[in-house]
């Protein structure tokens, strides 16, 4: 008997998990490990359990005579019933170009938006660390044309429209009054969004000294023995 309740709860949680995974295909693990996502799974599980309780209180057997089979039919009905009910909207309100659904689905939309924010924050931290590592020695003045051109050359498939858009962003940086370090970070961040971490890292390594800040000269033996020159 208790197994049916456990399965019903799991059913609801799995439906919620499937919904989150479908929205965050690139990083499903990250998405599922956030607090709003866990809350979303628990909420779906509770809704399924509540639906099963209602079904049992009213004694709906789903037309199945066998007691055991009827119990499992109720489990399936509770899982799908809760899913359908929670995702329903009673009516739609139009606000300008937007259509806002009013009903239980509105609540789920808000929770999913919190999951998206949490995942974005987590990704932003990771991206920030990776970009600062890759771009730490890159000189913006040397790199702003060569690095993107080389990355796009490696990719070979970036649409012209994307290239134009990217060019405009970089022009904004060229004329901006901010430190070279921040310009380099923004160049890396914007480029990584288009080409990914591996291509960016490979390009920085391959271009090497052509885009890196001038390394400090290594003192030679003659410099040490004759420091004044």
């Amino acid at each position: 008997m208790w197994l049916e309740w456990v399965i019903t709860g799991l059913f609801g949680a799995l439906i919620g998990a499937g919904e989150i995974v479908s929205q965050f295909r690139d990083e499903p693990d990250d998405a599922l490990r956030t607090l709003p996502a866990l809350g979303y799974l628990v909420f779906n599980a509770i809704a399924s359990l509540f639906a099963l309780a209602i079904i049992r209180i009213f004694g709906w057997t789903m037309g199945v005579q066998d007691e055991i089979l009827s119990g499992w039919a109720q489990v399936v009905a509770a899982g799908f019933g809760a899913m359908a009910l929670l995702r329903a909207s009673i009516f739609n309100v139009r606000d300008g170009d937007k259509v806002i659904a009013i009903g239980p689905s509105r609540f789920l939309e808000i929770v999913l938006a919190s999951v998206k924010d949490a995942v974005d924050r987590k990704r932003a931290e990771q991206r920030g660390v990776v970009v600062s590592q890759i771009m730490k020695d890159v000189n913006f003045n040397k790199a702003w044309q060569a690095l993107p051109a080389y990355c796009f050359g490696l990719l070979q498939s970036l649409p012209q429209e994307e290239q134009d858009k990217f060019g405009k962003k970089i022009a904004l940086l060229v004329n901006a009054t901010m430190s070279e370090r921040v310009k380099s970070l923004l160049l890396g961040l914007t480029l990584m969004n288009l080409v990914g971490e591996k291509v960016l890292s490979t390009a920085v390594t391959n271009l090497g000294d052509d885009i890196l800040m001038k390394p400090l000269p290594v003192p030679t033996a003659s410099d040490v023995s004759n420091p004044v020159g």
Binding site: G153, L158, Q163, K168
Partner: peptide
Amino acid sequence: DDFGSFLSSVQRAVNQSKSHE
């Protein structure tokens, strides 16, 4: 075009410094 659009776009855009400010 692998990167020609980028180079021409960025060169064109760099000259629009007034709107950049």
